[in-house]
C-alpha cells in the first residue's frame, strides 16, 4: 500500500502572551497508508486536535516534515492547500458541524461546490446516492435540527466522503453519541471508507472506538507512541481499570 501521509519530527508551538512559547507537538512521526485504520488516544489537552489539524492541512507545523501524497505540505500555500484538502481529505467532527438551515441533501452536496469537475454539476445526484448509502435516503429533505444525533453524524459522514477523499480524519466522531449509536456510526464509517479505500485516522477518548483500528497510537508529551490494543469490558475490565493508560483515558473522557 502506498503512503498517503508522512510526518517526520513534526512540532507545533504556539505563542503565549508574556511567556515562553507553548510546545504542543514535540516531534511527531507518523505514516498513514491507503486503507489504514489508525486510532490516536490521549488526555484532554494533549494536542490530539492540533495533530489532526496539522495532518488535515488546516494548520501548519512549526518544524519538521509533512508530506501528503508526496507533496511537501510546507510548500503548499493558500488556494493550492485548500484544494488539496478539499479533494483528498474528509473531516468528521464530534459536534457534526452540519450547516444549519440546509437540508441533509444540501449539507452533503456542500463539498461538491468546490469540485471544478463533473461532480459539481451532478452534486445533487451524488449527494442523494451518498445519503442512501448511509441509510438516510428517506430523509434527504430534513434539516439537521430534525435529525437525531446518530442521523446527524451519518449526514456528516456522507458529507465527509462525498468527494471520495483518500484520507478521513475523524475528531471524536462518537463523542456526542451514546455507545450503541457510536459503534453503529463507526461501523458505517469504516464500511464506507473501505469501499473507497480511504485511510481513516480517528481521534477518540473512547477505548472501545480506539480498539476498532488496526493501529493504535497514543499522544503523550507531544509525541506519538504505540498504544497496545486491549480488550475492555467483561473480565478484562478489572485488569483494564488497573491499567494507568486506561485510567488516563477514562479521566480524559470524563474531562
Amino acid at each position: 500500500m502506498s503512503v498517503l501521509l508522512e510526518a517526520r519530527d513534526v512540532t507545533r508551538t504556539v505563542d503565549v502572551i508574556d511567556g515562553e512559547p507553548l510546545t504542543i507537538l514535540a516531534g511527531v512521526d507518523l505514516a498513514v497508508a491507503e486503507g489504514d485504520r489508525v486510532s490516536i488516544v490521549g488526555r484532554s489537552g494533549s494536542g490530539k486536535s492540533t495533530l489532526l489539524n496539522v495532518l488535515g492541512l488546516l494548520d501548519a507545523p512549526t518544524s519538521g516534515e509533512l508530506t501528503f501524497l508526496g507533496r511537501d505540505a510546507r510548500r503548499l500555500r493558500g488556494a493550492a492547500r485548500d484544494r488539496l484538502r478539499g479533494g483528498e481529505i474528509g473531516f468528521v467532527f464530534q459536534q457534526f458541524n452540519l450547516l444549519p438551515g440546509r437540508t441533509a441533501l444540501e449539507n452533503v452536496a456542500t463539498p461538491l461546490y468546490y469540485d471544478a469537475g463533473r461532480a459539481f454539476w451532478q452534486r445533487e445526484k451524488i449527494a442523494r446516492e451518498m445519503l442512501e448509502r448511509v441509510g438516510l435516503g428517506e430523509r434527504v429533505a430534513q434539516l439537521p435540527s430534525r435529525l437525531s444525533g446518530g442521523e446527524q453524524q451519518r449526514v456528516a459522514i456522507a458529507r465527509a466522503l462525498v468527494r471520495r477523499p483518500r484520507l478521513i480524519l475523524a475528531d471524536e466522531p462518537t463523542g456526542a453519541l451514546d455507545l450503541a449509536t457510536g459503534q453503529t456510526v463507526m461501523e458505517l464509517m469504516e464500511e464506507v471508507a473501505g469501499e473507497t479505500g480511504a485511510a481513516l485516522v480517528t481521534i477518540t477518548h473512547d477505548p472501545a472506538i480506539a480498539q476498532r483500528a488496526s493501529r493504535h497510537l497514543r499522544l503523550e508529551a507531544g509525541r506519538l507512541i504505540a498504544d497496545e490494543p486491549r480488550e475492555y469490558g467483561g473480565a478484562d475490565a478489572a485488569d483494564a481499570a488497573d491499567d494507568p493508560a486506561h485510567a488516563e483515558l477514562v479521566d480524559g473522557a470524563a474531562a
Partner: peptide, 16 residues
Amino acid sequence: IREIGIRRTFGATGGR
C-alpha cells in the same frame, strides 16, 4: 465564521 470554517475544511479557498 463557524459556517465559513466548515466550508474551508471542505476545500473552500479564501478567494471563494
